[in-house]
């Protein structure tokens, strides 16, 4: 027995409210991130990620307040992503009770920011979020590029090389999202996940495309991910986190039950 693979539910938060929420039977307010976090914690989530999907200045204050409330009663690791651009943004979220922050486009625009953040706060709390899309043509060797602006803008940066560079700059973990699969419910981009997971020595969280429990297991087994992140299958109560863990265990994956 050894380290368990992690299941991380992600809450997309807009102005203090969870979007895409569903009315769970034991939750009064489906849009309240605190109530949903509490539920995921009870069901056995290994960590919880909050993604500030609009990330305006005003929203960051609201997000810090949400994190503070959750951290007062949910004692598992909490990650906050979206709009983290300065050391002050990081400090604010850590002080509110976050354990890690996800840095996405700010890393692309200024890679040194990742180095500064890791030096200042430690690699253990710096997650670099990578949004990648396949750019190779059919029949060519697979190649993925980093995209920004929700997958709309290409950067020309090779995703695998970028992951290694971010590790060298002090990232403690990679959150990898396939922009081809995000929202499709057709499963992770397993080749992308595996390419990155095998290229770096830090943990990789697979994200983007989960539509069923088999997808979660495949992310670990074929994608070689250390953790899997999903939003909608848990939000819409298609599956509980406990069910996801039981399924993964039946597939021979070590989980925390």
């Amino acid at each position: 027995m050894s380290l368990a693979k992690r299941i991380i539910p992600c809450l997309d938060v807009d102005n203090g409210r969870v979007v895409k929420g569903v009315k769970f039977v034991d939750i009064r307010d489906a849009g309240d991130p605190v109530e949903i976090a509490r539920r995921y914690d009870r069901e056995g989530a290994d960590e919880i990620t909050f993604l500030d999907i609009t990330a305006t200045h005003h929203n960051r204050d609201t997000m810090a307040h949400v994190v503070e409330q959750v951290a007062g009663e949910v004692f598992i690791p909490l990650t906050v992503g979206g709009g983290i651009r300065t050391l002050e943004d990081i400090r604010r979220m850590l002080n509110a009770g976050a354990d890690k922050v996800g840095i996405n486009s700010a890393a692309v625009f200024n890679p040194e920011f990742v180095r500064q953040a890791a030096e200042k706060f430690g690699s253990q709390c710096i997650v670099v979020a990578i949004d990648a899309k396949k750019v190779s043509a059919e029949g060519e060797k697979n190649r993925w590029e980093i995209f920004t602006h929700g997958g709309r803008k290409a950067t020309g940066i090779n995703a695998v090389e970028w992951a290694v560079r971010m590790q060298n700059y002090g990232a403690g973990e990679i959150l990898l999202t396939s922009m081809d699969r995000d929202g499709t419910k057709s499963g992770f981009d397993l080749l992308l996940t595996r390419a990155i997971s095998e290229a770096v020595s830090i943990p990789v969280i697979a994200s983007g495309g989960v539509g069923n429990l088999e997808h979660l297991a495949e992310g670990i087994i074929s994608g070689k991910a250390d953790a899997v992140l999903a939003a909608s299958i848990f939000h819409f109560a298609e599956y509980s986190i406990a069910q996801a863990k039981q399924y993964m265990q039946a597939r021979g994956i070590e989980v925390r039950l």
Binding site: S2, L3, G172, S201, I202, P203, V204, D226, R256
Partner: peptide
Amino acid sequence: GNRLKIPHMGWNQ
């Protein structure tokens, strides 16, 4: 045969 990542991160017994 899977590479063990460093840091050791997550829930262990």
